[in-house]
Amino acid sequence: MKIDLTGKVALVTASTGGIGFAIARGLAESGAEVIVNGRSTESVNKGIQQLQQVVPGVQVRAAVADLSAPDGVDAVLRAASRVDILVNNAGIYGQKDFYSTDDETWETYWQTNVMSGVRLSRALLPGMVQKGWGRVVFISSESACNIPADMIHYGVTKTAQLALARGLAKFVAGSGVTVNSVLPGPTMSDGFASMMKDEMEKTGKSLEQLAKEFVMANRPSSVIQRAATVEEVANMVVYVCSTQASATSGAALRVDGGVVDDII
């Protein structure tokens, strides 16, 4: 199977590192023009430079904005007026006791993880429908199905993304536009690497070994019994964005290594 996205324009939110960057790279390697988004000019420029190094000749644009507020989304839309592929990857996470999670925290998570995707989809879907082709992907999480007790506020927003994607898929039914969710599980992202930095120095263990130990201690239902790489997550996203995935819409596709103990 050869995925060819030549002539397509892809906006990947929060794409300066981690899973977002891996998705941007995968789409660029498939021929798409990529719009890199991040919250600072420095991070976006760095992300673009890295993308240009690993994908020579890539067509790439910058969209500097914090998507947790409407004006940030408006800023992105000024740089991305025509988009064929929208990957809603922007999101925040963090452990917090439910009793200590105040309204402000809930609102921050809701605006960043859910409303950023709502606003971008509302603005960009009409153009896709008019052209008769488009792809919208929400990067959710296995936490959407397996709500973590120490991150209830996060899990709720991830579940909301599944509902939003399914509803939008039905809303644009028959248009040639597909809307799906991808649910990563434990992944060796930049954030995980930063979290494990001190432990790596203290124990001398590799990131892969520490990630495996984390999975076995905290997600023992994992079938692959290790963490995924960001590239493995990106591979699923790139496929869902391809022309070959035209019969997949309204789906929640897990790249969780089998953590969620469900056959459906």
Rank of each mutant, 00 (worst) to 15 (best):
V255P: 07
A211M: 03
A22C: 06
L164P: 02
K158R: 15
S246R: 13
S222P: 06
A90Y: 03
Y239H: 14
A32W: 03
I48A: 07
G176Y: 00
S143W: 03
S81D: 15
M196Y: 08
R39S: 04
L168A: 09
A14Q: 11
D103T: 14
E107S: 13
S43G: 10
V87H: 02
T159N: 10
G134Y: 01
R122L: 02
A80P: 06
T16A: 00
C241V: 01
G18K: 10
S116G: 02
I3Y: 02
M216A: 15
M196W: 01
E104N: 11
R135L: 00
E142V: 02
S68F: 05
R61Q: 14
L51M: 09
V182L: 04
Q209C: 06
T243V: 11
L77M: 09
I264K: 12
A69K: 14
I48H: 02
Q161P: 04
A80T: 12
W106E: 11
A144F: 03
V64E: 08
A63V: 13
I263E: 15
P148S: 14
V54E: 05
P70V: 12
N113A: 13
V179G: 00
R226L: 04
S30I: 04
V255T: 15
G47S: 03
S121C: 03
T41V: 13
I224C: 05
N235Y: 00
V76C: 05
I19N: 10
A149D: 12
A247H: 15
G7N: 13
D71E: 13
V60A: 11
V44H: 05
A144P: 08
G204T: 13
M115A: 09
L51N: 08
V179R: 01
V55M: 00
W133F: 01
T159Y: 06
G117S: 05
M115L: 10
N89G: 08
